[in-house]
Design a binder for these strands. Sequence first.
DNA 1: GACAACAACTTACTCCCAGTAAGTTACTCG
DNA 2: CGAGTAACTTACTGGGAGTAAGTTGTTGTC
Lengths: 211, 211
Amino acid sequence: MVEGVEPPKRRRNRAAREREMLEAAERIFGERGYQGTSMDDVAAEVGVSKPLIYQYYGSKDGLFLACLARLRAQLLETVSDAVMAATDAEDALYAGFVAWFQFLDDHPQAWSVLIDEGMLSTNPAAGPAAAATDEVRAAFIELISAMVRMNLPPGRTADNDEIEIIAQSISGATERLAIWRSRVPAPPTPEKVARTLQDLLWQGLQTLSTA
Amino acid sequence: MVEGVEPPKRRRNRAAREREMLEAAERIFGERGYQGTSMDDVAAEVGVSKPLIYQYYGSKDGLFLACLARLRAQLLETVSDAVMAATDAEDALYAGFVAWFQFLDDHPQAWSVLIDEGMLSTNPAAGPAAAATDEVRAAFIELISAMVRMNLPPGRTADNDEIEIIAQSISGATERLAIWRSRVPAPPTPEKVARTLQDLLWQGLQTLSTA
DNA sequence: GACAACAACTTACTCCCAGTAAGTTACTCG
DNA sequence: CGAGTAACTTACTGGGAGTAAGTTGTTGTC
């Protein structure tokens, strides 16, 4: 029997298939968003039937969260590293901002996965990725709070409400700026944005420390 | 035939029904979010069949947008009024913040309508209310930009990028703070939050004006 | 090499919900 | 009263999430 090519391998082991699915899902979610993507789409892309995805990832949310996980870790690590590498508080803030905006420039597709239904979803009941994105946010807020606290003079007792308010503000500002940059035709460079934000906030932060 | 009460009026005119539908929709969206609400739910609540809602509002998005419209107008007006009533720039900023947080405290249900899938949706393709919420945001950003510009010394040529960055930051900060306040058990008062935010930003804003 | 046992995979559904076509019932005005 | 229209309903389509139950390939064992 003349067979031009060997028949394509149908069966793969679980790990390999999971990887395939994840890659396809990342791409399709990135292109069409969460709502715009159906499980059948992903299944077709992988060349597999839908229930198999359910068997491996449990639900559409599960698949989406899996897509986010890598991303999340990378993003957090990138920014944390930049902050930790800085020599003083002022530089740490600036470096963190730059790392944040730069990362999102470097991973536009990943970013759109995060944004769509994720960044936006604030209500845990609303979105699937809401919880996951909230975790990222919480981690950043923790990071910012820590930076603010460390910048406080030794003797001063921090007003926790104030620190929380400031951390939330900075987190909100950076998120909105990221979204804005991703949608405007010619966004300013990460450095420019970071610089401006730094200028806007730094003096106020100093004042807090000495009030 | 003994009829205890007169048979309930079934038929109403269009305007009255539209109002009924809008009220029901506002309540249900407020409770269960956009995704969690089905058109059948709303129809049942009003005591009417689903197609009637479609006849009047066109689509689920249409209904949701109608809910947002009032809210939107009120919110914008409240904050604008507060800003306009202020005597100087510093007070205008503070008054605007207070008005914003206060309004959201006073309309928690309305607020949750705005947040859920609305505030969050940044991608036009993602959500239905995305466009509407973006309009609110755009209006605020315009307002903030104007305030910043007016606070500039007469001779200075403004760097438009910087002003945009600042306006986006402030908008993002206030949004995030509002969401945070709505979810934390004992949020600080509007005045406290406004004060802290004011302290954080004011000096930076002054610096921009004289840089 | 045969076969048991498990892992990989599929077919063929269910249910839920947005949206619609086509018809029916009550009100109103001449 | 009857005609015309506004208000309303029943009964459907289509699509997508999720699932029950079965089938087929692979692998290790004698």
